[in-house]
Design a protein around this nucleic acid. Structure first.
Length: 803
RNA sequence: GCGACCGUGGCGGAACUGGUAGACGCGCAGGACUUAGGAUCCUGUGGGGCAACCCGUGGGGGUUCGAGUCCCUCCGGUCGCACCA
């Protein structure tokens, strides 16, 4: 073999060369109109923060990119788009802090992200980049709103909403953490009553829940969604009052109705006034005022002492006929159920605490053998007239049936899920396309007038009035009513960003069309998304909202499927020193310096090697060098192979190769990237140990390496004399017989303890192995002199001798 | 409180349906080559013991020929939900 000097591996040169070539040759741009095997590889698009892409983003995107490149090598036409979720309070607050309009800042941030995303070697089809802030995009966000509006799924409602005094804006329930603003952990969220736009997502609760069963998602993500939807089965029971008012309560435990010793209405309940006795009025009103001024923390935190006021009137228990007192208390929430409950202190912890506090009667009606309050449903009814002795579950059905017959109950299902509030009293979002007319009411902006462009204004600062800054922009604010032509006023609220991101996957394949949100043919070809990869932080809201919007569009005949993401994989979180990376903690790691020092390929692989992709891990840079050493070894070996004579692989190497292909294929398919990398490392070690670098040994490795380290794989592929991109090659296949051939080591155990090993041909019989085993010194020492009571043989693995 | 997941060398982590615990990598130790090396290569590396062996996957118990893996229980951690009737 002739020794040719091997050039040094310089990632910067190699990576620049291939990135330039991929762009020039449109390597990453599939034919969207006539693909042979379309594969839509989607990753959750980033919010382009001013700090740029951080290693957490890169961890996420690398794993998704590997998936796309892997599928590409398996012969799919992979469409891997990238875009930016650039509207929202996040950008707006940053813009406010630096005193520049976000419209000016965002393009710069996007440019930084784009540069970083290109630099790390993502296989993105940049022809189809999108940004939610682009009027060509949000025109269709507004259009989607109008579809829901016209279908009666968007409505206005005055609602108690969370108000963050710092943001001076409404924040969603889900953005409130323990009563504090998610963005301002030192700021308590207050309650305010505002007129808001909502989407009627609760109407879809049942379908959103039921469909979960047939999605290829991780069980944990589905559980999160199920809990969020929070379905409860029960009944509405009617308690009437002497004055004629009927109070409807929701309960999941109708079997305990005989133990309902009082009723509680939420302070906001519409019947409170009517049911309050004259002499209690002053006290009740004072209580209601006090509750209203309370912030959400005090209202929501569970373990505090209960407060409440007796209304001075009574209702009739539909089961016992007794008059029971009616109270109001803030532990009952107006947003859930009917805003009124029957209190069964013996069998509910909250009611028990309340009854104890106010000395209300506690009547045990279910015998469970546990002390009160006992909430178990494994009990038998007592003190319940004709139902005594009935088991709880049985009693639930029978009591409901009995009350239904008398018109006092309706079986009912309740959801924890609330309607989706899409209004934000902010500037940086797509304006809600509604015009208010004194004569016509709220009128949707006609499609031909879309988009309602967000004006660039100087004073985009929100104020405490609760009215969006857009209201101050008079020439924008006043407009003609599209229906009657009279002067109207624009809606000044903008959309929640979750609406921007609830449909972006529909837009990607169709970004070049301005006359339609998505092209029917393109959509038919590419959707639903083949694999969706993203973080668990979006397990609930983003995914639920996207599913909801898709479902509605399906019902309106706009798309042909109702689940946008049949296959979802969630990557883990990359943390730093045991904590989530965040700007406030100051532990955000930026990838640029690492990429510069080690190269994008090394850094990509390192991120994938530090832990299981779907679990995440702690970022520390101590072992990057190991990955770089591996790529150096591959580099050297491939160059040696280029100069080596062609020849057959030694048997041992051939077997190892087939085993490696098998392992890397299954692991990569499952996104178990860390073990796939380990298998490739092991293989290269074997190639080097056997001193057998050759084309046959190294070419399949390069193809398997290509998804992980695409640049160096391309370079070495060329070194071996190939003309085109390595991504035009086919993923290597393995032969099971070749992977399995050869001898195996069978472990010999005596009474379950390892005492020896014997080498036999694969598939050897028990007798054969036993004979060899009994010749083994160490084994004999433990067996000799004792009768063999039993043997357990596991083919090719273990023989256990029981003596 | 409820729900889900997790606990393996000095470190990150392997171990498919119960079947050789610690793959792969970092680090560390020794050696080779070198003017030098934080470069490269080789050897070793769970703990104890001179050895035969013994002990080892958070603690305790169980099932099994055999348990990191299954069951019970306790301890510790992460995440989600949380006055949802």
């Amino acid at each position: 073999m002739t020794r040719v000097p091997i050039p040094a591996y310089d990632p910067a040169t190699v990576e620049a060369k291939w990135q330039e070539r991929w762009a020039r040759e449109h390597t990453d741009e599939p034919d969207l109109d006539r693909p042979r095997r379309p594969f839509y590889n989607l990753m959750m698009f980033p919010y382009p923060s001013a700090e740029g892409l951080h290693v957490g983003n890169m961890f996420a995107f690398t794993g998704a990119d590997i998936h796309g490149r892997f599928k590409r090598l398996q012969g799919y036409d992979v469409f891997e788009p990238m875009g930016f979720d650039a509207f929202g309070i996040h950008s707006e607050n940053y813009a406010l802090s630096v005193g520049v309009n976000p419209a000016e800042l965002i393009p710069k941030n996007i440019a930084t992200f784009r540069r970083q995303l290109r630099r790390f070697g993502g296989m993105y089809d940049w022809r189809h980049e999108l940004s939610t802030t682009d009027p060509r995009y949000y025109k269709w966000t507004q259009w989607i709103f109008l579809q829901l509006f016209n279908a009666g799924l968007a409505f206005r409602k005055k609602a108690a909403v969370n108000w963050c005094p710092k943001d001076m804006s409404v924040v969603a329930n889900e953005q409130v953490i323990d009563g504090y603003c998610e963005r301002h952990p030192d700021t308590r969220v207050e309650q305010r009553l505002l007129e808001q736009w909502f989407f009627n997502i609760t109407r879809y609760a049942e379908r959103l829940l039921a469909n979960l069963d047939r999605l290829d998602w991780s069980e944990s993500t589905r559980t999160l969604q199920r809990n969020w939807i929070g379905r409860s089965e029960g009944a509405e029971l009617i308690f009437d009052t002497p004055a004629g008012a009927k109070i409807t309560v929701f309960t999941t435990r109708p079997d305990t109705v005989f133990g309902a010793t009082y009723l509680v209405l939420a302070p906001e309940h519409p019947l409170v006034d009517e049911l309050t006795a004259q002499e209690q009025r002053r006290e009740v009103n004072a209580y209601r005022r006090a509750v209203q001024s309370k912030d959400v923390v005090a209202r929501r935190v569970g373990d505090k002492t209960k407060t409440g006021v007796f209304l001075g009137s009574y209702a009739r228990n539909p089961a016992t006929g007794e008059a029971i007192p009616i109270w109001t208390a803030d532990y009952v929430l107006m947003e859930y159920g009917t805003g009124a409950i029957m209190a069964v202190p013996a069998h509910d912890e909250r009611d028990f605490a309340f009854a104890t506090e106010f000395r209300l009667p506690i009547r045990e009606v279910v015998r469970t053998g546990e002390p009160l309050p006992s909430v178990s449903e494994d009990g038998v009814l007592i003190n319940s007239a004709q139902f005594d002795g009935t088991g709880c579950r049985d009693a639930q059905r029978r009591i409901v049936a009995w009350l239904v017959e008398r018109g006092l109950a309706t079986p009912q299902v309740q959801y924890r899920l609330h309607d989706w509030c899409i209004s934000r009293q902010r500037y940086w979002g797509p304006p809600i396309p509604i015009i208010y007319c004194d004569r016509c009411g709220p009128v949707g902006v006609p499609e031909q007038d879309l988009p309602v462009t967000l004006p660039i204004i100087e004073d985009f600062r929100p104020d405490a009035s609760g009215v969006s800054p857009l209201a101050r922009h008079k020439e924008w604010y006043f407009t003609k009513c599209p229906r009657c032509g009279a002067q109207g006023r624009r809606e000044t609220d903008v959309f929640d960003t979750f609406l921007d991101s609830a449909w972006y996957f529909l837009r990607y394949p169709s970004t070049e069309f301005d006359d339609r949100p998505w092209d029917p043919a393109r959509t038919k070809t590419w959707l639903p998304v083949t694999t969706y990869i993203g973080g668990n932080e979006h397990a609930v809201l983003h995914l639920l909202y996207s599913r909801f919007i898709t479902m509605v569009l399906r019902d309106l005949g706009k798309v042909a499927f109702e689940e946008p993401f049949p296959k979802l994989r969630a990557h883990g979180l990359l943390i730093k020193d045991g904590a989530k990376m965040s700007k406030s903690r100051g532990n955000v790691v930026v990838p640029d310096a690492y990429i510069q020092q080690w190269g994008a390929d090394t850094f990509r692989m390192y991120l994938m090697f530090l832990g299981p992709y779907q679990e995440g891990g702690d970022f520390r840079d101590t072992s990057i060098v190991g990955v770089r050493r591996f790529l150096d070894k591959v580099w050297t070996t491939a160059h040696e192979a280029a100069g080596a004579d062609a020849g057959a692989l030694p048997d041992a190497l051939e077997r190892k190769l087939h085993q490696t292909i098998r392992k890397v294929t299954t692991d990569t398919e499952r996104l178990d990237y860390n073990t796939a990398i380990a298998a490739m490392m092991e293989y290269v070690n074997v190639v080097r140990e056997l001193g057998a670098p050759s084309r046959a040994a190294i070419e399949p490795l390069l193809i398997m390496l290509a998804p992980f380290a695409p640049h160096v794989a391309e370079e070495l592929w060329a070194t071996l004399g190939h003309e085109g991109s390595i991504f035009a090659a086919r993923w290597p296949s393995f032969q099971e017989q070749l992977a399995a051939a050869g001898d195996v080591e069978v472990v010999i155990q005596v009474n379950g303890k390892v005492r020896g090993r014997v080498t036999v041909g694969r598939g050897a019989s028990e007798q054969e192995v036993l004979a060899l085993a009994l010749r083994d010194e160490a084994v004999r020492k433990f067996v000799d002199g004792k009768p063999l009571r039993k043997t357990v043989y596991v083919q090719d693995r273990v023989l256990n001798l029981v003596v």
